[in-house]
């Protein structure tokens, strides 16, 4: 832990509203169910890259340590691999809890590259109903900014070249659903219902 985070930690206060907010989210009940046994961090493939382990995240949510939780990279690194969920004695679907936390982080103005990716992805879905993998990269590039994109393109050139040479990244979008407008109506209606029912 860096000095800065240590200092920040010292000033962090208990925020019971935050705890309540997480409990009320779609997977909040699981945060209550966790018995802090510590099995999830021992099975998590990404643990070493995470600021806070999955178990610790839950502990800190309960302790109302909002800033530490929301600033962690943990939920962004969770790959939904289900390993911990299969082994958790309480059956906590950690990847779903992590999705709730991403939401909360975004709501609180915190962002991450994988959210940029998710947004590009969701946009393609609502525009065409299907993902055009070639265009995905391009739009993601636009989203993260030209400078970052150039850096990424350079870093990924071997990967991209292989995919291109073997015709794995279509240069033109494959056909989408017949009537994307209808699909958008379905999704809009779904979002309305979700709002009405509470949660997200």
């Amino acid at each position: 832990m860096s000095d800065a985070t240590a200092k920040e930690k010292a000033t962090i206060k208990y925020d019971s509203e935050f705890t309540k907010k997480v409990y009320e989210m779609e997977n909040g009940k699981w945060v209550k169910m966790c018995m802090q046994c510590g099995i999830c961090p021992t099975t998590c493939a990404l643990k070493e890259k995470m600021d806070l382990s999955p178990r610790r995240i839950i502990q800190l949510i309960r302790a109302g340590r909002k800033d530490e939780v929301l600033k962690a990279n943990t939920m962004w690194l969770c790959t939904s691999c289900y390993t911990c969920a299969c082994r958790c004695p309480r059956g906590v679907p950690m990847m779903d809890v992590m999705h709730d936390l991403r939401h909360l982080a975004v709501e609180n103005g915190i962002n991450h590259n994988s959210q940029a990716m998710a947004e590009v992805y969701a946009k393609d879905v609502s525009k065409r109903g299907r993902i055009w993998e070639g265009g995905l990269m391009l739009n993601y590039g636009l989203k993260i900014g030209l400078g970052n994109f150039m850096k990424m393109a350079l870093d990924m050139q071997d990967v991209g070249k292989g995919l291109m040479l073997h015709r794995r990244l279509p240069l033109l979008p494959p056909k989408g659903v017949k009537n994307p407008g209808k699909l958008r109506e379905v999704l809009n209606r779904a979002q309305e219902i979700a709002k009405k029912e509470g949660g997200h």
């Binding site: 991403r102 998710a118 379905v186 979700a194």
Partner: peptide
């Protein structure tokens, strides 16, 4: 016929879990 993207695990963080579920259910 006329299938759409299942939404994977990422769409829910943008459009919400329920809308993502409906997308897949289509």
């Amino acid at each position: 016929e006329d299938w759409n993207c299942c939404g994977a695990t990422v769409t829910s963080s943008v459009i919400g879990q329920f809308a993502a579920d409906v997308l897949a259910a289509r």
